[in-house]
Amino acid sequence: MAEITLDQIIQPENLVYTKSRIMTDTVLHYCPGCGHGTAHRLLAEVIEELDLQADTIGVAPVGCSVLMYNYMDVDMQEAAHGRAPALATAIKRLMPEKFVFTYQGDGDLAAIGTAETIHACNRGENITILFINNGIYGMTGGQMAPTTLPDMKASTCPYGRDVRMMGNPLKITDIVATLPGSYYVTRQSVHTPGNVRKAKKAIRKAVEYQKRNQGTCFVEIVSNCNSGWKMTPADANQWLEENMLPFYPLGDLKVPEE
């Protein structure tokens, strides 16, 4: 039989993957290779698959993903820096039938927003929190974050984080898992295709579980800030695997008792 041509393969009926229609056509402003785009897309795919577009209200953070509402075709609110869980609490309490999520970086969620994070999760608010941990303040120029690893370089610790002077990194996801109000807590990454598939499954659970009204669902996604880390995207993902993951191991920290 004659070899099949590319034109024969590239036909609508053979399409197996394309960007979710929940993602708008606006070009993402993120640096090339930044994991924020991948994380947005996974959430968009889950919202599309679960047919939640009209029932979703998201809360965008301050940080590189501040413009998230331009990229996802769902209702969104913008919170002040770190306050997304407080705003999401209000939205969900007023509209309990909606799927309500926050999307926050580590500076937003684990520095200025620590109180909001801990108390929303401890109250067991029925919201879903997506936490993008790139170990740095990306938007403002790569300053040290609470999540910056020991000895990791950042613009405000150019010789590496000295924990005796600058304190220890905060594993806020581990803390959230100990709180009685959290229902599902997991740590994932998007630096390889296999990890992207696993992260999507976890996000899907964190979205579906909200219907159970049992407490806060919390998904950490360890991601790269290749600009802040001053590496190519591929090197940044390799560095993430070798340095971030030993300190922030992947997997579920709290799963519902079935």
């Binding site: 393969i9 399409l15 197996v16 993957y17 979710s20 090339p32 991948t38 998007v190 295709p193 992207v196």
Partner: peptide
């Protein structure tokens, strides 16, 4: 689809056939 799901900008579409 590995390439498409790792692409942060979602710019890859994938087609597949069995021959």
């Amino acid at each position: 689809v590995n390439c498409a799901i790792i692409c942060p900008d979602g710019v890859i579409s994938v087609y597949r056939v069995k021959t």
